[in-house]
C-alpha cells in the first residue's frame, strides 16, 4: 500500500493541474494510494507512523528536501520503503542524488521500484541525510575514540553522509558506504592549506565554550556533539540516474 505525503506548498492552486496529471498517472500505473496533507502544525512523522501502523509499505514525499527533513526522525524506525516525488522550484538535492526526475516523470521511476538501503546519520538525537558543517573553526574532533584531529590555524569542517552537489552537479559523498566522510579545508593565514579527507564511523566534539554547527543548513548551538552513522538503515526508491 502506498501513502503519499503532500507538502503544504504543493497544495497551492498553481500545482493543481500538475498534481491532477500525477495522480492520474499513478492510478494508471496501479500505485495510487492514500494521501496525507501537511499543514503548519501537522507532524509529518506522526502521520507516517499512523499510516505504517495501518499497513502502508511505501511512503512517497511529494515536495522537496524540506518535506523529507520534516519527517527524518521516523525514517529509521519503520520497516517502510521511502521515495520522493520532487515538485516546486526549491532545492531538491535529495531527489537529484536519488535520481528522481521532477514531477510527472517521477511516477514511472517510483513504479519501477529500484530499492536501495541507504545510510542515515545522527547528531546527538537528531537525524540528518546530507551533511554537518562547521565553518572557520579550530575545534578538535575526536575520531572513532582513538585520535584527535584539528586545523592548526583555522579551517572549514564538513561531515558528509549523502553529501552534497558540487559545482559540476556531481554528488560528493557516498550514501551507501556505511561511513561518514570528514573533510577539513584547512587554511594557513589567509591561504588554503589543503584538503583533509577521511572516512569514519563516528566523531565526537566536546568543547568548553558553545559552538555553532550547521545540520543540513540549520544552525544548532552546543558543547557536545556525537555524530555517527547507521549503515543501510533506510530503504529508498531510486532512479537509474542516481548519483551514486
Amino acid at each position: 500500500m502506498y501513502y503519499y505525503i503532500y507538502d503544504e506548498f504543493v497544495q497551492d492552486k498553481r500545482f493543481e493541474k500538475e498534481l491532477f496529471q500525477i495522480e492520474n498517472r499513478l492510478t494508471d500505473l496501479g500505485i495510487s494510494g492514500k494521501i496525507g496533507r501537511l499543514a503548519l502544525f501537522k507532524d509529518a512523522a506522526e502521520l507516517i507512523r499512523d499510516e505504517a501502523r495501518r499497513g502502508a509499505k511505501t511512503v512517497i514525499f511529494v515536495g522537496n528536501d524540506r518535506t523529507i527533513n520534516r519527517a527524518l526522525k521516523v525514517l529509521p524506525e519503520l520497516k517502510v520503503t521511502f521515495g520522493i516525488l520532487p515538485m516546486g522550484e526549491e532545492e531538491n538535492i535529495y531527489a537529484k542524488i536519488l535520481g528522481m526526475p521532477q514531477g510527472f516523470a517521477a511516477c514511472d521511476v517510483i513504479s519501477a521500484r529500484i530499492i536501495k538501503p541507504m545510510d542515515i546519520a545522527k547528531v546527538n538525537d537528531r537525524f540528518f541525510l546530507s551533511r554537518v558543517s562547521i565553518p572557520n573553526t579550530r575545534v578538535p574532533l575526536l575520531c572513532e575514540g582513538s585520535y584527535r584531529l584539528a586545523p592548526t590555524d583555522a579551517g572549514d569542517i564538513e561531515i558528509r553522509n549523502w553529501g552534497r552537489m558540487d559545482k559540476s552537479q556531481n554528488c560528493v559523498g557516498n550514501p551507501e558506504d556505511g561511513l561518514l566522510d570528514l573533510i577539513i579545508e584547512a587554511k594557513l593565514g589567509r591561504k588554503k592549506a589543503g584538503s583533509t579527507d577521511l572516512k569514519l564511523k563516528f566523531i565526537d566534539i566536546r568543547v568548553k565554550e558553545q559552538i555553532s554547527i550547521h545540520i543540513d543548513g540549520e544552525r544548532v548551538n552546543g558543547n557536545n556533539f556525537k555524530i555517527k552513522i547507521a549503515p543501510s538503515k533506510v530503504r529508498w526508491i531510486v532512479g537509474k540516474e542516481r548519483l551514486f
Binding site: S146, Y147, R148, G155, A186, A193, G194, D197, L198, K199
Partner: peptide
C-alpha cells in the same frame, strides 16, 4: 585514500586499512 593535509594536526593512534597520505 585518506589524506591528512597541511594545516591539520592529528594526535593519537591512527589506524587505517587503505592508502594514507600525510602532509600535515
Amino acid at each position: 585514500e585518506t589524506v591528512i593535509a597541511r594545516g591539520v594536526k592529528l594526535e593519537g593512534d591512527f589506524n587505517s586499512q587503505g592508502n594514507v597520505i600525510v602532509e600535515g
